[in-house]
Design a protein around this nucleic acid. Structure first.
Length: 267
DNA sequence: TTCCAGGCGTATC
DNA sequence: GATACGCATGGA
């Protein structure tokens, strides 16, 4: 991984990175593909930090940002300092994972903000991706950007009616209240053991095992967490009736991302 | 019209 | 602890 500045833009050379596979595989909901389809350009945000990123012949072009933001926000966000070739080499010992990596080897885990991930995946439950994006988009409209939970202090489910989030509105309200009351402090618990974080997150209404694991995997970089949704249950039944092999476990969350995408859009 | 979507709360056993 | 059912909304 190396980058250079070119005028206002930053050009990045790296491997194991595909924008479509990474930004459109159900781990983040605020990236929109631009243009006609022939060129690969995405615009989106991490909280309220904007970015336009495109894939060109030999590099990725990062626009609407600056070097300090690139280094401090986007390098970690796209997990660009992790060697995915090595992880895929480990996965290549497993037949199903090997296929999943061959199908979409440019997936990376997005290291998102813990609150943004938690909020997004509360909204995701029993929902489809276009509608998840719609609800989060309306949340951002309501607040002029992705709100801090402090901005939402005192919110009631009725206040959230314009989001058309359905039964999830009361879950968002409960989450916001617990964070504002400091009943749960994400910055503190993200250092706790995984099991303990999961237990604490699940005290929030509407947060069960799956949403908790998404919040941990995408919002706290717990790459051993495997969110078990309907698709991953199918994967496990079909390929891993006795669970993942031992050598996958430390990276099971990343394995999950390849397999989820493969099961959902491949085959 | 009915079914389903990156689940979870609740009731019941 | 396991299982069945309802849930807001909107697209297919």
């Amino acid at each position: 991984m190396e980058y250079i500045k070119q005028g206002e833009d930053i050009l990045l050379k790296t491997s194991d990175f595909d924008l479509d596979e990474t930004l459109d595989c159900g781990q983040a909901f605020r990236w929109e593909r631009q243009g006609n389809g022939s060129e690969c350009v995405y615009r989106g945000f991490m909280l309220n930090t904007p970015l336009t990123v495109s894939a060109e012949k030999d590099y990725f072009r990062f626009r609407d940002t600056d070097e300090s933001t690139f280094v401090n926000v986007w390098l970690p966000y796209f997990d660009l300092e992790t060697d995915y070739s090595e992880i895929k080499r480990i996965f290549s010992e497993d037949p199903a994972l090997s296929k999943a990596c061959a199908y979409a080897g440019g997936i990376r885990i997005l290291r998102q903000d813990s609150w943004e991930a938690l909020c997004s995946f509360i909204i995701s439950q029993n929902n489809n991706i276009p509608r998840i994006k719609g609800i989060i988009g309306r949340l951002c409209e309501m607040y002029g950007g992705f709100p801090k939970f402090e901005d939402m202090n005192g919110i009631s489910p009725d206040d959230l009616a314009p989001l058309r989030a359905g039964f999830r509105a009361k879950y968002i309200a409960d989450c916001v209240r617990k964070l504002n009351d400091r009943e749960i402090v994400l910055d503190d618990i993200k250092n706790f053991p995984t099991e303990e974080i999961r237990k604490i997150l699940m005290t929030i209404k509407g947060v069960g095992p799956k949403v908790a694991d998404c919040a941990m995997l995408y919002g706290m970089y717990r790459i051993d967490c495997v969110p078990m949704d309907v698709w991953m249950k199918r994967v496990m039944e079909q390929f891993y009736p006795d669970g993942f092999p031992e050598f996958v476990l430390p990276y099971a969350g990343i394995a999950q991302q390849y397999l989820f995408h493969y099961m959902r859009t491949g085959t």
